[in-house]
Design a binder for these strands. Sequence first.
DNA 1: TTGCATACTGTATGAATATACACTATTCCT
DNA 2: AGGAATAGTGTATATTCATACAGTATGCAA
Lengths: 207, 207
Amino acid sequence: MQPLTAKQRALADFIESHQRQQGRAPTYQEIADHFGYRSVNAVTGHIRLLRQKGYLASDTGKARSLRVTSPLAKLRSRIVDIPLFGSIPAGLPQAREQDTEGCISVDVESIGYKPSRNAFALRVAGDSMIGRHILDGDFVVLEHGPEPRNGQIVAALIDGASTLKTFLLKNGKPYLKAENPKYPDLVPAQELMIQGVFKALIRRARE
Amino acid sequence: MQPLTAKQRALADFIESHQRQQGRAPTYQEIADHFGYRSVNAVTGHIRLLRQKGYLASDTGKARSLRVTSPLAKLRSRIVDIPLFGSIPAGLPQAREQDTEGCISVDVESIGYKPSRNAFALRVAGDSMIGRHILDGDFVVLEHGPEPRNGQIVAALIDGASTLKTFLLKNGKPYLKAENPKYPDLVPAQELMIQGVFKALIRRARE
DNA sequence: TTGCATACTGTATGAATATACACTATTCCT
DNA sequence: AGGAATAGTGTATATTCATACAGTATGCAA
């Protein structure tokens, strides 16, 4: 790709940040206003060059159709928002709207699967799953609904709090196992509410 | 929030998916076309109701300004794209454009810090960092540039391949330590290229 | 039945928007 | 000095687009 001049890079950066912050691309007029141009044609010229060099794309005649063709944007796929629950009191039937403390946003490729509407995220409290390399403070993405298979990690409601455990089948009976010797080993999974199956994990570095 | 009718939900869904796939919100005409309406006013009515109920926002008079006010979208912050390198041969000066195998896209909140232009991601190969609970196949986000502090996890170029190690200072001298007894313990960090400091981790569930 | 909300068709209009044409100034290279 | 590329001002215009006005039809509750 041909290099950009300073002005052209500034323009491209502005278009990209406007797109992200406002949710829509700027118009030529808005670009001109931002840079203090008294003529929209100052913008037109720059855009033409940016397009020739392959940094911008747009549909002729369409309003607000400017797109920065960053090489990364091409690789990015669909971004999904997964609600982060502080606590899951009971059945989480349609709890998506309530109790949402935050939001995990990742693209589908990054977490390796396409979350359904029943996906949710939890912040891990405690080190009961350290044997499976899940740490206190990690964020786990879980899928609600599917029947857990032997050995999968699940979130279960135990004594009013949701806890991560390994789901085990022993002689056909489901058990939950904590992956830390400090915790009681096997809990019969009878009457337990399995809230979700572990799908992905996000960890932040400690400072 | 008041509930939506089936038609209204379909409309909201279309607006959202159009926004995501095309990068810009649809016009009233485009919505009408998509649903086969012969009049744009069919759309106008629905939009008015969606706005009244708080599901949609738009700036009057602005083109393509429809925004779905999903409760999650409000929580989502800026999404950043981090290039995923297959391998980092040498100094990674401005290697962002090349060698990019993929793209990790997350919002800033989710990974807990704002990546700079020097951030990059690697797929972990091997279990040399299992002592720090980083597994084979995990994706790690690293920040290039800052001087690593004692105990931080870094990616270093050793024998032509980048490897994760713990950065240690012993008597003022920098060492690199693998967190697995199977690996040689301390490697003098002299002459080694520190490529980045560990900032975040993304793990997919094994199937 | 009488309303009332939803779900449309059809027409119209002004503002928003992209984009072409005509020029000037500056910088950099030859 | 001359020419090309970048960086602007100013004016104009055909679309695109949001939105208002005037209706019709249907289901649903009082």
